[in-house]
Design a protein around this nucleic acid. Sequence first.
DNA 1: TCTGGGGTCCTAGGACCC
DNA 2: TCTGGGGTCCTAGGACCC
Length: 436
Amino acid sequence: MYALIDGNNFYVSCERVFRPALNHTPVVVLSNNDGCAISRSNEAKALGVAMGEPFFKIADLQQKAGLVALSANFALYGDMSQRMMTVAAGLGPEQEIYSIDESFVSLAGVQGDLLVRARRMRERILQWTGLPTCVGIGETKTLAKLANHIAKTAERKPGVYPSHLAQVCHLGYLSPQARQALYQASDVGEIWGVGRRIGSRLKEAKVNTVWDFLQLEASIVRQNFGVVLERTWRELHGVPCIALEHAPASKQEIACTRSFGQGVTTLEPLIQAVGEFASRAGEKLRRQHSCASQVLVFIRTSPFREGPRYSQSVVIPLRRPSANTAHLVSAATAGLQLIYKPGYQFAKAGVMLLDLSADDVHQGELDLEETQDAAQSVQTPRLMHALDTLNQRYGRGTLGMASTGLTEQSRLWSMRQERLTPQYTTSWQDLPIARA
DNA sequence: TCTGGGGTCCTAGGACCC
DNA sequence: TCTGGGGTCCTAGGACCC
């Protein structure tokens, strides 16, 4: 048995902890660059704001409907997330942190009434962190996900599901008849693993609900939709196929990409941007104690704008695996020079580190051609460590490699505060804390 | 004017080999 | 009408997740 604990409208809820005046108000939190809405309060959803909707399309709702728009503050959300996860972990012996606002907890061997325990844990999270959550419980992770959807929907849209399932829904406590009714009331697109594409293909085949999907033959699902969806089908039938993953595996690739506030036409600001992205990707790389063997850099024009289109990427192999910012930056900028073409309005760029390996594998692997750099290389890990520590302590961009050129151009991709609803532009650190 | 930023896994098809 | 038959490795692209 698994539980899925999920924060409601997570980023918005985090903001509301520090600004209780925003309760019962339509609120959205915007992505980097204030580009689009990535978290919406129930009131904002009721206004018709879609997930990922561009801000310029909903900006008028600030005047018309009192919508409040906030720039994302990921440092705050990460901190709130940790507190929520710590409390949630108490529900069972093992926890998998699945995303910033969701965790699975294994309930194997847990004694007593699971529903009561889950309700109590939910209350505790609310009390200790101020964050509202919903809990779904089922025999597999996919069923726990579905149960969580039911718990959330029963609370937000009364009438769709029985009201006693709101906030906490335990499928294992329901009769087969009650489960069938729930599955018949659930859209097939709500299944974890069924996205837009597969959802519409299923509907073409008259598979509209979770119940319809369960009636298919496993072999038909496999044949038409592949092994991944067949696994989902089995999970919905109560057969566990997806294990809990504690100790999250280290990343197989690391990316740092940003859209720019305005189009960029010249090479110089792109070099600075790409240098900065490579540095940040390097920090993530060192945090998980890995080295990269290849650096990918890409630039592209906006797919939404008129004008000539251009999108290109290149992979630069490193002479040997490295986690050294200097190596990463010079590979990224060299790659950029290869793919850059004048005459375009670039809207986005990024750096990805590929072919990662554990960094201890390469200790003492200096080859002859590099011996003149040996003294320097020995110093490198300490230098990189100092770099990371300083940047962590004093903020991004405190210290960087000379070639990256700091500060000036970071305006290109930094958040644009002027877009926010004006009375809400104060930093959260300056606000009184409503709940400790 | 203004459209996020990460990730994972699977599959099809091409290149190459014997 | 027929065009050998497999393997393996790599890459691009599609699909999904939050």
